[in-house]
Design a protein around this nucleic acid. Sequence first.
DNA 1: TAGATTGTTAATCGATTAACAATC
DNA 2: TAGATTGTTAATCGATTAACAATC
Lengths: 207, 207
Amino acid sequence: MLLPERTVERLSEYRRSLLQWLEEGKTHIYSHELAALHHNTAVQVRRDIMFIGYTSMQRKGYDVKELVGVIEETLDSKKGLNVAVIGVGNLGKAITTYFVGKRSKLNIIATFDVDTNKIDRVMSGVKCYPMNRLGEIIRSENISIAIMTVPVDAAREVAKQLVEEGIRGILNFTTAPLRVGPDVYLEEYDMVTSLEKVAYFVKMADR
Amino acid sequence: MLLPERTVERLSEYRRSLLQWLEEGKTHIYSHELAALHHNTAVQVRRDIMFIGYTSMQRKGYDVKELVGVIEETLDSKKGLNVAVIGVGNLGKAITTYFVGKRSKLNIIATFDVDTNKIDRVMSGVKCYPMNRLGEIIRSENISIAIMTVPVDAAREVAKQLVEEGIRGILNFTTAPLRVGPDVYLEEYDMVTSLEKVAYFVKMADR
DNA sequence: TAGATTGTTAATCGATTAACAATC
DNA sequence: TAGATTGTTAATCGATTAACAATC
C-alpha cells in the first residue's frame, strides 16, 4: 500500500516536468518522453505510473492533466501540511525564501531560533519564534513537519524536543545523525557527504 | 575497485564520528559503537571497513587514528580538489560560508554569478567572478568540482558550459535534471522532492 | 494491417542482513 | 576456557531492467 521510496521521489519530479509540459500547451506525453526529461527509462516511468494505478485511455500517451491529478492525490494531503524551519542561519533563510511563494500543499508557516535579534522578525512573510515556544506554536499552528537547519551541536536536543512536541516528519540538514521513534519519518541530507562523494568519484575517474 | 556509492557515503559519515571520538580521547572503537552513532548495524560497519581493506590488529576494536587514516587515503585526493560555487543567491551563500573554514581536502576557491553587483565581492574569503570568466578561472585555478546553485532556468545552460570547460564533477542543487557526459560525475539534490517525500510518508502514517 | 506504445510478470542487479568460522 | 568481536560467504531484500502479450 505504501509506495517505494524511490518511486515517491520520482513522482515528485515527474509532477514538475508535467506541469511544465502543460504550460507549453501539450496535453499528452509518452512514457519515453517523460523518461527523457529525467535520468530515466520509459519502463521505469510506466512502472511508477502503474504503482499509482493510472492508465492511459488511448495509446496516445498519458493525459498530462489527469496524470498530474493522480500524482497530486497520491502525494499531497487534502488540506496540505504545515512546516516549520528550525534555525534561521544562512541555510534556514535560503530554504525558507526558496519554499515560500511556491504554490504547494506544503506551507512554511513559522521559523524558530534562539537568537533574540531574530525573534519576532518576519522573513518572506514567515515569523520567527523563540525556541521555548516550540511546543505551543506546533500545536496552535498544527505543524507536522520540521526542517532542521540548526548548528550541529544543537541538533540532537532540538530533534528530541520536536519529537516530544509531536512533530510527524523531520528533514534534517545538519550533519548529526538523528534517532527518532518509529512514528516520526526522518529524512537526512548531508551536504558534506554529498560533496565528498562527488570528490571520490572524480578522483577515481582519473585512473 | 570502485567502492559502492552507499559505502562511500557512510565512510564520509564515519570519518566525522571518528574524529569526534578521537577528540573525546578515545583511541579504539568497536563496530557496534560506530554503528550506534549512525543509523546502522555492526555488520554494515564491518563490511564497509572490509571494503577499504583495513583490519584491526587486536580484538579491542578498531584503532581510530589508523581507521581515519585509511578512510582519508580512500576518499581524499593527495593534493585536494578545488571547488567553485556557481550562483551566489541565498543557497549559494549558505553553502559557501558553510564549507569555508572546514579544514578539508575540498577547497571552495571561487564563486560565479551574473549579477554585476556581486562580481569582485569577496565572501568568506572567496571571490566572486563573472560567468564569462568561467573557463578561464576553472583552468587557472585548477577547479574540478562545481556546486550549482543557480536559478532553475539557467541550470541547463550553466551545466553545458561547465562540462565544456572541463569540470569533472557537479553537485546540482537546482530542480532541473541535468544530463552530462560519462566522464563527468553528477550528483543531484532536490530539496523540494525531499520535503514532498517526508510529507508523503507523514500523510501515509496517519492511517 | 504493421508499428508504436502500454501494462505487467519474470529475471537481474546492487545493497543489506544472516550466519558462522576464526581470533583474541 | 568462555565470551566478545571480527572478517567473510551465503541468503535475502528492494529496486531496476528485460521480456513480452495486449492494445490501438
